[in-house]
Design a binder for these strands. Structure first.
Lengths: 163, 163
DNA sequence: CCAAACTTTCAGAAAATATTGAAACTATAA
DNA sequence: TTATAGTTTCAATATTTTCTGAAAGTTTGG
């Protein structure tokens, strides 16, 4: 396979993955493009390579920066802004898991803690409360796993478990 | 909070979560409804409680069954089919992670193994190959983590890590 | 076999999401 | 200042995803 084709496939595949993770396809593709680029790219270069509009490029770059996955870079004597991706897979995984935890797990846990406070003592209510507790416990476990990713990359147990 | 309101919130919240996980909202809501129901429900009951059409209900129930999250149940002397959810959080987590691994991680790994075979020996190609290796390694780790969820619920290290 | 009860399918409609492109905005150099 | 280069915003549009409802299909009891 030629390098250009390989790059193209990588960008497509990464976009696909992003899509099934609730991250929009273009955002994931821009990230992929920057990831495989050896130098920072300008908005115009991104637009051209992915054949997308300026507005689209700008918005998605902004989101990538907000997620901490992409950085700005300035070249002396050039007025354009250039962008480059975080290249460390560990850093990327950490940032994504931190962001998703904030966006999904935390609202879930808030909801569960609220509904657990349902009043009543009949069997149906008790069963519901028990279920909410159960889900809450599982959410807590998921949170712990994400925290592991966030913090414990050098942890020997973790290394052993994922080796 | 009253039981009915709590249930409603649970269904909404679960649907929300599903949505940001690439699972469609209705599918997640049906699952939530069955999860909090003390008895199996028929298609008509699901349609009524969630105010959705028969077609929609049917398709999403089918998917839930395909994921192994929901089962059919037959009541003697009744021609209707009734549905109930897997209630064990561990089982649910296992099944979801198994399914997502199949749908997302495996295609990613296939893609990576393909593009790693890119030919050439210039610096740019080498850098690309190294990146693909790197992503591949991270995918392998993610796979291991999912396998942990799938198999190691009694594993003492896992318990310790997520306690 | 037929008819009633129930389930499945799927083309078109509706809703949700993503994208465009041009105008407004901002920063810089002269 | 003003002209220019570059960035951001957002209403309109296009695309994708989900949902509906009616017709077709299936199963069962008589």
């Amino acid at each position: 396979m030629e390098l250009e084709e390989a790059k193209q496939r990588f960008i497509q595949g990464w976009g696909q993955l992003g899509a099934s993770w609730g991250i929009n396809r273009t955002m994931a593709q821009i990230q992929a493009l920057l990831l495989i680029s050896t130098k920072p790219l300008s908005t115009d270069e991104i637009m051209e390579k992915l054949m997308i509009s300026r507005g689209n490029a700008n918005m998605n770059i902004r989101d990538l920066i907000a997620w901490g996955l992409v950085y700005k870079s300035f070249i002396p004597g050039d007025r354009k802004e250039y962008y480059y991706s975080e290249k460390s897979m560990w850093e990327l995984a950490k940032k994504v898991s931190r962001e998703r935890k904030k966006r999904e797990l935390e609202p879930l846990v808030r909801m569960l803690d609220e509904v657990k406070a349902v009043k009543g003592n009949d069997d149906e209510t008790k069963a519901f409360r028990a279920l909410a507790e159960d889900v809450r416990k599982m959410a807590g476990r998921a949170e712990s796993m994400l925290d592991m990713v966030t913090r414990l990359e050098e942890n020997v147990f973790f290394k052993w478990l994922t080796k």
